[in-house]
Design a protein around this nucleic acid. Structure first.
Lengths: 354, 354
DNA sequence: CGTTAGCACTCCGGCCATGAGAGTGCTAAC
DNA sequence: GTTAGCACTCTCATGGCCGGAGTGCTAACG
């Protein structure tokens, strides 16, 4: 039978929008399907429940709502949320009080830079009541600043590599021959002279020369190889580390009380490649990005949504902050929070790198 | 009415032990209360179910078993588990196959030392199907090896502190006056000359002298203060970091499928002070320590058990590895695993520090 | 005296029927 | 286009019922 709207076609008329919005905002807080009567009682739409039902039926036909079963109320679909955040949702800037609180928290923290990412994740988790994610801003490529060799035993040493961007990496190296600290210092001095300010590639190029250098013990070559490898790995990774906080918030949502689904999500998050691919995708997009339910490629993530934004300078160093929550999520607030925090992180990065 | 055994009194007779053991080992795998009939069928005790019931009643009176309700089988109490691991449990060494597998995993890992703790936690989680915990071995007190100042912008620099024990810390410092890299290098060189090989306390002592040194800019004093603070904090903490893996394993146990309890546990684990206090307690005890259910002081931990061991050298550097799981846990296996892994970590530390 | 068979009793868990409640979709009237 | 009315459907909570599992007790047995 012919409906008024044959296909989703054009934009929705205002009343449909209003109703969709009401349903979503109601469902987000109650997690219960919402019915027509309930809606007219609670929201002051000047129409009867029957009319609302008609509209709901249209919205369902258009794919924005669905039905758990015949006599249940309506529930938004992924497409419904999508439409909501694209064209219906209210302003998404954060309330001044919340801004203030967040700024305050950031003011408290010491200058230990790693803390920032923990804090960003924790803050986001706290204000959105979902899980917060944050990665450090990773420079696109690094240069060597300084290396240090510290003997920890007769046959092992700790190799510390300080990068020009302010980052540090540390590994152990085995010493086949016994070296004492003085000898290690000599090697370190030699390598620092030769390798300071070089990129991974340039470090690699020096290896051959070092091999023939009479001053350089064979051990120096092995260390250089390790340094090159560390630097290459650093350059290659899109995401260095992921801090997350408040995964437990999500766990306690009613739709996840039976937890098998969530286990999958947790597992997927452990995997850095996945977040790496997201970062790559985000780098091109400007503002906050939202991935709703099945919009995530990964099947594990079909029941959750991500709200992500990058911070830093596109060509130089990029990091990500974001929210992971149930698809039934307070998107405007989450988006506002992520936008604000990413802005804050931007300022911090700016302060750091000029 | 007078029972045969008025009080728990002496050790249990062999048959009671055998029955307690059977109940525990059965319950550990099934998570269901164990009944008398079931027991005689499955285990070849040469007695009737009635006799078993009598014994069970005694064991219950003695506090080793309990009853969810009248017509249910028996369930071990914390005291039951305790008795079991103290005097009844079978040999607790790990099967050679498992040892081999674990050794193999450790063989695979690169020398990046942080990886070890992740790996230890992951390995323990994997072989016990519970959560694995591991902290890095933290030296009791540290000495400064080297500091490095890297300009990241006109008004901030990254301060890298390398400790003689091979550890590294990094923080940002604000520069009120504009410094360029060359000036920072000068300051770093000056400080390295003055502070190398000093303890936190000694660094503190130099601060006054630096303040009057004409070569040292005021900025150098501020940096030194920061260095001292970092070193003091490092010395003061008992636990630097905690790696955990496989918390999800625990989550999927039947007793935790309704997850509120587990949230509490997770939250308690986040808190380093708690683990710190455990480490302090462990440091005195020699072997593997087991904390069963309510034996943990924290109320949140009353439904889980911990199996923990230290590794490293008591006077010098101590870390912890362990298992967190439901009280209904395969203790002998868990204990064997923890003992083996802590031994392995011991070897690694030994290799590192002499 | 310890062990055992027998038995009554208790309690849980699953099953089914029931009924209230919520919400829909449709139709006909406004 | 909107609304009232109504039949229909489906869920969910309730309560009764029954079978099964397991106990505790008692009395008999060796």
């Amino acid at each position: 039978m012919a409906r008024r709207t044959e296909r989703p076609a054009g934009p929705l008329d205002p009343r449909s929008q209003q109703i969709l919005r009401a349903i979503i905002e109601e469902y987000v807080v109650t997690a219960e399907p919402v019915g027509s009567q309930w809606l007219v009682d609670r929201y002051g739409l000047g129409v009867s429940s029957a009319t609302v039902r008609n509209v709901m039926a249209e919205l369902e036909e258009a794919g924005y709502l669905s039905h758990p079963h015949t006599s249940a109320g309506r529930v938004p679909t992924d497409a419904g949320y999508r439409l909501y955040i694209e064209s219906i949702a209210p302003q998404m800037s954060l309330a001044p009080v919340e801004r203030l609180m967040i700024r305050h928290q950031f003011g408290q923290v010491e200058f230990a830079s790693e803390q920032w990412f923990r804090l960003a994740a924790a803050t986001i988790a706290g204000t959105t009541h979902a899980a917060g994610l944050a990665t450090p801003a990773k420079p696109r490529s690094c240069k060597l600043r300084h290396i240090d060799l510290v003997a920890t035993s007769t046959h092992t040493a700790s190799l510390v590599v300080v990068l020009a961007e302010g980052g540090v990496k540390q590994e152990l190296v085995a010493l086949e021959e016994g070296y004492d600290q003085a000898e290690l210092d000599d090697v370190a001095r030699l390598l620092n002279e030769q390798l300071a300010d070089k990129s991974a590639r340039q470090v690699g190029n020096r290896i051959a020369a070092l091999g023939t250098d009479p001053d350089a013990p064979p051990f120096a070559v092995r260390v250089t190889l390790r340094v090159e490898k560390m630097m290459r790995e650093f350059d290659a990774s899109t995401v260095e580390d992921v801090f997350s906080d408040g995964l437990l918030n999500v766990m306690s949502e009613p739709e996840f009380s039976q937890s098998e689904k969530l286990r999958r999500v947790f597992a997927a998050l452990q995997n850095r490649d996945y977040l790496g691919s997201l970062v790559a995708r985000l780098a091109t997009a400007g503002d906050v990005q939202v991935l709703i339910g099945a919009e995530n490629e990964r099947a594990e993530m079909h029941d959750v949504s991500l709200v992500l934004a990058t911070y830093g300078q596109p060509g130089r160093a990029l990091g990500v902050v974001g929210v992971l929550g149930p698809t039934r999520m307070a998107y405007p607030h989450a988006i506002g929070t992520v936008r604000f925090v990413s802005g804050l992180m931007n300022e911090l990065v700016e302060q750091m790198y000029r």
